[in-house]
């Protein structure tokens, strides 16, 4: 026998009393501190406690770099035709659909026009969440169009890389994008239009081996993984553990592969300074 017995039915469930904590707090992978998400966002997605740079999506990146978070997207309507009808454990077509649904983008890059400290610029920002930011025909074409726009309008261009490299599911098609973008960059170079490559975590494979390393300046965020081959592939090849900090931004800086490692908060002023050097103060040049 129980001492107390509920007289009638279940307790009424008043939904309003629910406390929702999900998504409000984030744990920093680096220092393992719990951070209030709003604090993190106000700090440009950099951990306020240990300065770990969290990955940011393409839209956030554009908003962070461009004045008042204002920009105009262009050439965002291209989609892959799945040229090889590639199927591994899952069909590429369904991977594409899933990624499009998850990110709200058509592929792994966004082209935008906006102003950086008052200077018109073109920015191509890659989206790592879209199949690892991999580069297929759509990414190749979109970035090439951004470069062509830059040549045509003599507008400085920034490309923000965040990619695992070429998109395997488009096979040799994705390899040819390296040649295509690099050829366009040769024309940009001849037109003497500034190009600043911004490498973020991670930038590897075919993206590093083409446009990411071809900026007039190559700058990276702190702690970003940057390399040609992935660390696992290298470990398997040389059959030994890789040294601490191998293929991180600071390692590349030390080996002369980067012009600077710039924390996210100083990224915009740094780029603005560089563009002043390359194109003159705002309003004095063709811009």
């Amino acid at each position: 026998m129980t001492w107390f017995k509920r007289q009638s039915g279940e307790l009424a469930n008043s939904g309003e009393k629910k406390v929702r904590t999900e998504g409000l707090w984030v744990k920093c992978e680096s220092c393992r501190q719990i951070i209030w998400k709003k604090d993190l966002e106000e700090n440009l997605n950099v951990c306020p406690k240990c300065d770990k740079h969290f990955r940011v999506d393409a839209r956030t990146r554009l908003a962070q770099l461009l004045d008042d978070g204002q920009y105009e997207l262009f050439d965002t309507d291209l989609v892959s035709t799945d040229p090889l009808k590639f199927v591994d454990l899952k069909a590429y077509a369904s991977r594409l659909k899933q990624a499009q649904k998850d990110t709200g983008l058509n592929d792994a890059v966004l082209n935008a026009r906006g102003k950086l400290n008052g200077r018109p610029v073109i920015v191509s920002a890659m989206e790592y969440a879209f199949i690892g930011g991999s580069m297929g025909a759509v990414v190749g074409e979109t970035i090439t169009r951004a470069i062509e726009q830059a040549v045509e309008s003599k507008t400085p261009i920034l490309i923000v890389s965040a990619s695992g490299g070429a998109r395997m599911m488009e096979g040799v098609i994705s390899l040819m994008q390296l040649a295509k973008i690099s050829a366009a960059l040769a024309r940009l170079d001849e037109a003497k239009v500034p190009y600043i490559s911004i490498l973020t975590d991670p930038t590897t494979g075919g993206v590093t081996a083409s446009f990411a390393m071809l900026g007039d300046l190559n700058i990276a965020e702190p702690g970003a993984l940057i390399g040609f081959a992935g660390p696992r592939v290298i470990e398997q090849t040389i059959r030994q553990k890789l040294p601490q900090g191998f293929q991180r931004s600071e390692f590349l800086l030390e080996h002369g592969m980067l012009d600077a490692v710039v924390p996210r908060k100083q990224l915009k002023p740094y780029v603005a300074r560089a563009l002043d050097f390359m194109a003159g103060p705002v309003g004095t040049s063709a811009n």
Partner: peptide, 17 residues
């Protein structure tokens, strides 16, 4: 390791340009 240290990606990229 050495290839990465000496800029494998940069060397390829430069040829492509």
């Amino acid at each position: 390791l050495g290839a990465e240290e000496r800029g494998q990606a940069e060397a390829i990229a430069r040829n492509l340009r």
